[in-house]
């Protein structure tokens, strides 16, 4: 379970921080929101634009 959810949980947590930060303050708080909500967008762009020729199956980790 864990590996599958590492990235989604990280990006979800960052998104939540960003959504709240801009609400709680201005200036630096807004900047925190731009970074934490911008990262998920960047991750999507990275995977869409630079598709690795990844192996279709990962070697079982267990």
């Amino acid at each position: 379970m864990s590996r599958v959810w590492d990235m989604p949980a990280l990006l979800g947590g960052l998104s939540a921080i960003g959504l709240a930060a801009a609400l709680l303050g201005d200036g630096p708080w807004d900047a925190v929101a731009w970074v934490t909500l911008g990262l998920p967008v960047a991750v999507m762009a990275r995977h869409l634009l630079w598709r690795r020729r990844a192996p279709q199956r990962r070697v079982a980790t267990r």
Partner: peptide, 17 residues
Amino acid sequence: LYGPFMRRLEFGTIRAS
């Protein structure tokens, strides 16, 4: 559903088969 579907895939894999 995401968990079971992604069990054998690296995060962000987009297969172009």
